[in-house]
Write a protein that binds this DNA or RNA. Structure first.
Lengths: 202, 202
DNA sequence: GTCTATACGCGGATAGAC
DNA sequence: GTCTATCCGCGTATAGAC
């Protein structure tokens, strides 16, 4: 077994806490306590709280998006890449709340510098992959813009899942991954088939 | 002119600060200072911070969503209700960062009790209205689920607007309201036209 | 690497005068 | 209604021993 690897343990604990409660609501004391150490030791491994946050984000985002490349290549032949992506992304969001919540936190509160940093270090690749996937279809507008729609649609469904049960007509099943996955795919297929380029598609 | 109305002033200031920095990062002192008063006086008007937050949210959400009913009715005839809604919602999100950010904050961090409270007091009506709008078209699946897609799609575009300029191919114009509005409408129209119920629509 | 001890300001919240 | 004064715990961060 590998050495205890304190840094890794800290990042795991921090990612869980930051994701569920937010950066401000989680103190260095909280993280240290749950790691089984002291705040002082955290400051040995990370210069300050901001650096711990950045390291946590980079760790989680890069780790979780790394499989995408493989997933897209190794899909079973009959399914199309868009389906593979949607199912992977929906599955990730709904099953991995650490990833999901940290991502939404950054989109909401990440300052421009942090977003730029994260884009360059981790998001560029996966976003380019998704753009290339949708570019394989005959998109009604610019593929990049359409990629944003695809990601946004899934993200939106995930976010609304929490409030949906309280809204009129909002059955709980509308907020489950299988439904979201099937439904968004259905919508996207209709868009992809309805265009004037229909003949060239597929 | 109406009386100074301290409560209202507090809510305005609080909504601005909470929206931009988050609840934890804004102290009662911060709010008091910007209001031109003291923390003690805030506690005269609101039991504690949690109550101030709830009052702020209810204030902002109900105020901003109130016009929706009128907007949907008074649309110029040639445009369809979905277009009216999309343009209103996109415009609201992109022009009113207080509303937009508080909404996203709640979807992310609102506990179930607060989401239930907000749903019952302010979101039920607008959501039902939107559901009814989309139900006027031949939606491919359940109208409620489709309403979630419509809201989610717009919300997703708005959220990604902040990071888009840093991503490959992410031109700044893709993140502006006019583009988002036009583009999402284009997508939705394709979905609405592609269904097997096409003949019955419109 | 990890600890103990500690500095010091800021946080929510209340008592009681005006 | 609004203030001054205050309590007290918790926050980040560091010094220095082990």
């Amino acid at each position: 077994m590998p050495a205890p690897d304190t840094q890794g343990v800290i990042l795991e604990v921090a990612s869980r806490l930051f994701a569920s409660r937010g950066y401000d609501a989680v103190s260095m004391r909280d993280v240290a306590m749950e790691v089984g150490g002291t705040p002082a030791n955290l400051y040995y491994h990370f210069k300050d709280k901001e650096h711990l946050i950045r390291a946590t984000l980079a760790h989680v985002f890069s780790q979780r998006t790394a499989p995408l490349e493989k997933v897209l290549l190794s899909g079973s032949r009959p399914s199309d890449p868009l389906e593979i992506f949607i199912e992977w992304f929906v599955g990730l969001l709904f099953s991995d709340s650490v990833f999901a919540r940290l991502l939404l936190r950054e989109l909401l509160d990440g300052d421009s510098a942090r977003l730029k940093y994260l884009s360059e270090t981790v998001f560029e690749r996966p976003f380019a992959l998704i753009t290339r996937v949708v570019a394989g279809y005959s998109t009604p507008t610019d593929p990049v813009l359409f990629a944003v729609s695809v990601i946004g649609l899934v993200l939106g469904h995930f976010q609304l899942a929490g409030i949906l049960p309280h809204l009129p007509g909002g059955h709980a099943e509308f907020a489950d991954p299988a439904t979201v996955s099937r439904h968004t795919l259905e919508l996207l297929r209709r868009i992809l088939q309805a265009g004037p380029h229909e003949r060239d598609a597929h």
